[in-house]
Design a protein around this nucleic acid. Structure first.
Lengths: 130, 130
DNA sequence: TTGACATATTCCCATATGGGTATGTAATGT
DNA sequence: ACATTACATACCCATATGGGAATATGTCAA
């Protein structure tokens, strides 16, 4: 199996930075595709494809206006993400105290391998690479 | 270019449902890898690989305990996601009124192609497929 | 040292990608 | 009907994937 489709849900759709950018643009007001193409330095087809993904997961709406298609962010669809992250809020509010303690000096010399994890390999032990 | 690496940021890392599941498990308390393997129906190597991704983007911490590795969610790293979604909160709070209006009957008969977008293709017009 | 246990890493492969280029299609103007 | 504008799709390709199986590494115990 490969990675899940970007259209499988909002989480996958917003994983792409470009799409988050688009959602930001389209949140304040609806815009035609061409305008987004100008705002971002991307080719029109790429923008259209991103919009398609966003549309499929319901993150944007469209409306036709003559030959233009006016897209707009459907904020409602972002709510599930907000709610999922919200369930962790109580934890980071708790962890604040712990993080502060640590910053104040009680570093744990050798235990606690933290933000940069461990060496991938102790040495080049000659496993057949590639 | 292909899709961005899952390790490029928290957004990409949490796009994978399994990883969100893991984050949920590890939020309440730290757990050894084996326990996660049992909780989810996955092989140990897969779990380790997911944990690696989460570790690289700082979504979890590790601590060694004998031969076991105890992982735990670092809620702090989820905050950026929470904040990004939060910027849309004011929009969905606004849109509520609009959505209600629509539900109450003023449907826009033919304009407004909405949650199911348009036909991909009018007919099979014989472009050389594959 | 040897063995067992707990994890991590490597190797495999099918699949979905995002970008660009080329082309199809819909709506408008003349 | 024809040209033009505004998008959408098709096609190509390099790349990163997630899963399983096999294997390596690290730690403790006897």
């Amino acid at each position: 199996m490969a990675r899940a489709a970007t259209t499988s849900d909002a989480f996958n759709a917003v994983a792409e930075p470009r799409r988050r950018e688009i959602l930001n643009y389209l949140a304040m007001r609806e815009r035609p595709v061409g305008e987004i193409v100008n705002l971002m330095g991307l080719e029109q087809p790429s923008v259209s494809k991103h919009l398609r993904v966003l549309l499929e997961v319901g993150l944007v709406n469209v409306r036709r206006d003559g030959r233009r298609m006016l897209y707009r962010t459907n904020a409602e669809a972002i709510r599930p993400l907000h709610e999922w992250t919200e369930t962790f809020a109580r934890y980071w509010r708790h962890q604040l105290s712990r993080v502060k303690e640590r910053a104040e000096g009680k570093s744990n010399p050798s235990n606690d391998l933290e933000p940069d994890f461990r060496p991938r390999r102790k040495d080049d032990y000659g496993g057949n690479k590639n």
